[in-house]
């Protein structure tokens, strides 16, 4: 297999609550993942599960406490100074709210041209102009919008500009952090369609972060489910959505609102995520898990269910062929 565009190895980034030093820190605990060239990988989980933190560490907007991020086998997380600055073009981010990342005093053309010129992708303004028109048509933005300011555009158009800016750098990987959560359904459908078409044309790898399981199912080929900073289940979407192995994944899928409601409601978690209740050395889902039993006081390893489908739950042990590396809640050092 060809080398992955992105490889994350054992990444940890924790935030302690200064007001409550004894409470469990939140963030990402020892997560590993790989994204192949041209692959769209989804990251789902509820708020506080560390999905955004992971995305930010990958884009080097945050520095991890430990672990490394490799982009095309270059240790991105260890780069410094000029080499870091030049390398940043390879990983770009699209955020949830385009308003916060667009410059209100720049027209779209000026704004995106900055990205083009910054990384020396175009030599002069004439070339930049040509590229801008190309990019606009790629993301489905009307050409007239290039001369407009962000406030003159609709929410969907602004998100297209953010995607266009990310694409302008010709990155290897784009981290999309909840790119459609702030949009209405009709506009969300437009933007998702654009992203999907774009992905097939340009072939850039996507790491798609979302809390909406339906959006992930539509967009991604492979998916990782996170809970409290660890990956509890991962695999191809058909496997994870069709035969969810982890009780948390099952609960998450069952809870998703549907146009055609399902008659049965098989599994539900108890209560809400309460950091105070969780202990570091046990399964993170134990306190809320309806299937929790004696073994769950010990953190389960990831069990391989075949085809890259893995689940970190003791109940998967019987169906799994062999266990992979021990995982889950590694004690925060």
């Amino acid at each position: 297999m060809n080398a992955p565009v992105l490889a994350v190895r054992n990444l940890t980034k924790l935030f302690a609550d200064a007001a409550r030093p004894d409470a469990m820190p939140v963030g990402v605990r020892g997560v590993s993942l790989e994204v192949a060239r041209g692959e769209v990988v989804g990251l789902i989980g509820e708020s506080g599960c560390g999905k955004t933190t992971l995305g930010r560490c990958i884009a080097r907007l945050l520095d991890p406490d430990s672990g490394e991020v490799l982009v095309r086998d270059v240790p991105f997380s260890a780069l410094k100074g000029h080499s870091l600055r030049n390398f940043r073009k390879n990983v770009q981010v699209v955020f949830q709210k385009p308003e916060t990342c667009l410059n209100p005093r720049m027209t779209v053309a000026v704004f995106v041209r900055e990205a083009l010129r910054n990384f020396g992708i175009v030599a002069n303004n004439a070339e930049a102009r040509k590229r801008l028109v190309e990019l606009a048509s790629l993301v489905g933005l009307r050409e007239a919008a290039l001369e407009q300011y962000p406030h003159q555009l609709s929410g969907g158009e602004r998100q297209r500009v953010a995607i266009m800016r990310a694409l302008a750098c010709e990155p290897e990987l784009i981290v999309l952090d909840e790119p459609t959560s702030a949009l209405d359904v009709s506009v969300q459908a437009q933007v998702l369609r654009t992203l999907k078409d774009l992905q097939t044309v340009v072939g850039t790898s996507f790491l798609f972060i979302s809390h909406d399981v339906a959006v992930i199912r539509y967009m991604c080929a492979r998916v990782l489910v996170m809970y409290l900073g660890v990956v509890v289940e991962e695999g191809p979407v058909e496997a994870v959505f069709g035969r969810p192995a982890h009780p948390y994944t099952r609960a998450l899928l069952a809870a998703a609102p549907r146009i055609k409601p399902r008659a049965v409601d098989p599994i539900a978690l108890r209560g809400e995520l309460m950091l105070g209740d969780v202990r570091l050395d046990e399964c993170p889902v134990r306190v809320r898990c309806p299937l929790a039993h004696a073994r769950c006081v010990e953190a389960p390893p990831e069990f391989d269910l075949g085809d890259g489908h893995r689940s970190a739950c003791w109940l998967s042990a019987d169906t799994a062929s062999r266990s992979v590396s021990p995982t889950a809640m590694k004690a925060a050092s």
């Binding site: 359904v185 009709s186 506009v187 459908a189 437009q190 998702l192 369609r193 909406d212 399981v213 339906a214 959006v215 199912r217 539509y218 959505f241 899928l253 998703a256 549907r258 146009i259 055609k260 399902r262």
Partner: peptide
Amino acid sequence: VPDVDEPHELIP
């Protein structure tokens, strides 16, 4: 609206 159970092409 994307569907969790039966993904379909979205028509904006």
